[in-house]
């Protein structure tokens, strides 16, 4: 028998107060893989994860996790999955150790087993020294680590991580990646949401792009990139006038960049690049320099949704 898909969503619709947050979601995630749901703020990522983790119910459509219907077999599904949400689900007045032991006891471990498991997890997550301290004294990164540790007191077969690295410093982020990779090596299916294209690219076997409640693209990172263009031709113009001319002649293919730059997709062949250069700068006076780079997921997002993702825009504005 084939292993069932870890996650299947068909025609999932969810509205809040008349607003469609999810609008016909179709998803399939293979067991033992990492799946990244990538999208800007407000795209419906959290709602989708909460439905998968049985904390919310869809208005229409079917949702199966580990082969079980999340509505009809809710209790069984809950025994197989774990969710680490955006807001740490830990008790602040209790210590890290007490939090983990409580979760262990709720999961059915004896108090000895729960304490053994708690110390083990504190060790794995680099929280041994903090274990005896109240969570209210923890930094944001420590809280998220403790929260994730709490989700792993009993190893789930599917782990949901809702924006696991938002607000983490680079070191904690790398630790989080290492944890995800180790879990996958043990056969856990990881479903994560993220606003960071690089994160999805680094971790995921499959990526789905979500925008305004719809999946706008789905596939392996390499596959998604190939659906747009392998390469990007980045042009630096000599003057604002030359830039305006270049943008005008490229039309919708142009992606304006900060400074006197504009980018355009290419297949990377000499013929295509030469043709593009001739189109943009027929007189040979307007172009200062050009480079060719591999497409990133930012480019994918732009090409598939017709607009830049929220974090990419934010970055462009700040830099």
């Amino acid at each position: 028998m084939n292993r069932p898909l870890a996650i299947e969503m068909c025609g999932v619709v969810k509205s809040y107060k008349g607003i469609r947050v999810l609008d016909g979601i179709e998803l399939a995630v293979k067991s033992g893989s990492v799946f990244a749901l990538l999208g800007p703020n407000g795209a419906g990522k959290t709602t989708l994860v909460r439905i998968l983790a049985t904390l919310s119910t869809a208005d229409a459509g079917s949702v199966r996790v580990a082969g079980l219907d999340v509505v009809r077999n809710r209790r069984q599904v809950r025994q197989l999955v774990s969710l680490t949400g955006q807001f740490a689900a830990v008790d602040e007045p209790l210590t890290g150790d007490e939090n983990l032991r409580m979760v262990g006891r709720l999961a059915g471990l004896s108090s000895t087993e729960a304490s053994t498991r708690a110390s083990q997890l504190l060790g794995e997550f680099d929280l041994v020294d903090a274990g005896a301290r109240r969570v209210s004294t923890y930094s944001g990164g420590m809280r998220r680590k403790l929260d994730l540790a709490a989700s792993l007191v009993v190893q789930p077969s599917v782990l949901f991580l809702d924006e696991p690295t938002t607000g983490l410093d680079p070191r904690s982020r790398q630790q989080m990646y290492a944890v995800v990779r180790a879990l996958v090596a043990e056969g856990v299916t990881v479903f994560l949401t993220t606003q960071y294209l690089e994160e999805a690219d680094q971790l995921a076997d499959q990526i789905a792009l979500i925008d305004a409640g719809r999946i706008v693209a789905q596939g392996a990172p390499a596959e998604l990139k190939s659906r747009v263009a392998d390469q990007v031709l980045s042009l630096t113009m000599r003057s604002a006038g030359a830039l305006a001319d270049a943008v005008a002649v490229l039309g919708s293919r142009a992606s304006p960049m900060p400074g006197l730059c504009v980018e355009v997709a290419t297949d990377g062949s000499a013929r295509d690049v030469r043709a593009l250069l001739d189109t943009v700068d027929p007189g040979g006076l307007g172009l200062e320099a050009f480079t060719i780079r591999s497409a990133t997921l930012d480019d994918v997002f732009l090409a598939l949704t017709g607009r830049a993702s929220a974090p990419a825009l934010e970055e462009a504005l700040h830099v």
Partner: peptide, 13 residues
């Protein structure tokens, strides 16, 4: 009003 509710519910409490 806190995140702990999600944890408890997902543990079948």
């Amino acid at each position: 009003t806190s995140g702990i509710m999600d944890r408890l519910r997902s543990m079948n409490v």
